[in-house]
Design a protein around this nucleic acid. Structure first.
Lengths: 110, 110
DNA sequence: TTTATATGAAACCTTTTGGTATTATGTCAA
DNA sequence: TTGACATAATACCAAAAGGTTTCATATAAA
């Protein structure tokens, strides 16, 4: 077990998480895949701006884009979030010792 | 239970986590409190640059600074990281159903 | 008291970020 | 085929981020 959390390539994930609009997009896509126009309609900014955020989310592997006719369907890829969650997981023993132990059990029985 | 994760004031925390140097500082401080000079010595940048990173970490509540003589001791405050971990926790059912259930148990028996 | 040390603070610079507007392209529908 | 629609792509801009150098201040030590 390493003493410090792995840096991995967590960078594009943490970078994607740093913007509140992008976190809101993640929450929205957790409810189901959506085309760009539908996402953009929910925010007070232009569609190209939203498209840029989607590009950054895609760069972090957080969403996958699938062409469907003239639409581009954006689908959440939650596994990418695990990279960030795992990094933070190295510290959660500080605030919840019991949870850390349960996680150990879960990982051992995998 | 809300359908979407709370936005809370996760912003300063996620912002602080977005930089690799700052994440490395967090890892370092997890091993114990340190003065600025000692932290700066571990990175290939000037002390004022590191001081700026520490200011951002402090802004996110991730570290606490305590004056001790002419030194300023930086101490990790892991509870602040829980804000980010909780946000991500709303998604971890996607990648580990069992862990999510265990977390429910932990939270119910608190 | 003088000197060295630890830090704070300001000014400055370059790159990145987050947004805009505009134009171009591919696809569906009449 | 023509027109409307969904998106891509480009150029542009202001502000924030991440770094530097320089100078000031407070404390410790000689």
């Amino acid at each position: 077990m390493p003493a410090r959390p792995p840096s991995a390539d967590a960078q594009p994930v943490f970078r994607a998480l740093a913007d509140p609009t992008r976190r809101a997009i993640i929450s929205m896509l957790a409810e189901g895949p959506r085309p760009i126009a539908e996402i953009a309609a929910a925010f007070d900014m232009t569609r190209p701006a939203v498209a840029k955020h989607l590009a950054i989310l895609k760069d972090g592997g957080i969403i996958a884009v699938e062409a469907k006719g003239r639409e581009r369907i954006n689908r959440l890829n939650p596994e990418a979030l695990k990279t960030a969650a795992d990094w933070l997981g190295h510290f959660d023993r500080f605030w919840d010792e019991r949870l850390a132990k349960l996680k150990d059990v879960v990982e051992r029985t995998s």
